[in-house]
Write a protein that binds this DNA or RNA. Structure first.
Lengths: 111, 111
DNA sequence: TTGACATATTCTTATATAGGAATATATTGA
DNA sequence: TCAATATATTCCTATATAAGAATATGTCAA
């Protein structure tokens, strides 16, 4: 079997670096496809295709304004990713605590 | 060009649901491969291969104990994902605020 | 209606899997 | 050394891209 489809969920959609670039860019404000094409170093068809994937999983929303399509991030769709990573927060905080502890012990030695 | 390699970074590694399952299981405590195989519904070779990917991107660490290999999550490796999602926190909080506002306005109407 | 602009879709191709089967490697105890 | 246990790796195949080129669709202004 091949890999899960990028359209299956937000996790797969953001696995692609280009799509994270687009999301980062849109985090600031709503933008047209043309603006995204200019900002990224990618062809227009590629941008449109990435936007379609992002839209399919709900990570962005689009609205038409004249000839342009304006895209913006749907923050709520990123929340599940944030929540998932949060479940490991305890682990890295513990690691940071141990690093700090060792540093202090080493410092104490020098005295 | 095909998709980015799953071994390229943590984002790609966690895109696979099975690997998230494994990480969730390991979040509780260190486990042997055999325990993981029993807990997940996957064959042993599949588990070993997923563990290799997770290890290559630094999401898990392994140590041998007799015939067994014990794996545990490296919390620090998940931190970048958490940080990235955090940059969008402002957006979903804003959305939640607007939802709340509308609910209150609707409630006010009823009076 | 026509031309120009903005975006989306289709088609093709090279490539990276993920799972299953079979096999290899490592470690322990007798 | 040999058998048994625990993991890892290799080989194979079906499938899902991602990028580029070409083309289609949609919208506006005259």
């Amino acid at each position: 079997m091949a890999r899960a489809a990028t359209t299956s969920d937000a996790f797969n959609a953001v696995a692609e670096p280009r799509r994270r670039d687009i999301l980062n860019y849109l985090a600031m404000q709503e933008r047209s496809v043309g603006e995204i094409v200019d900002a990224m170093e990618m062809g227009q068809p590629s941008v449109s295709k990435h936007l379609k994937v992002l839209k399919d999983v709900g990570l962005v929303e689009a609205r038409r304004e004249g000839r342009q399509m304006l895209y913006k991030v749907n923050g709520m769709a990123i929340r599940p990713l944030h929540e998932w990573t949060s479940t490991f927060e305890r682990l890295w905080k513990h690691q940071l605590f141990r690093i700090k502890e060792r540093a202090e012990a080493k410092n104490e030695e020098k005295k």
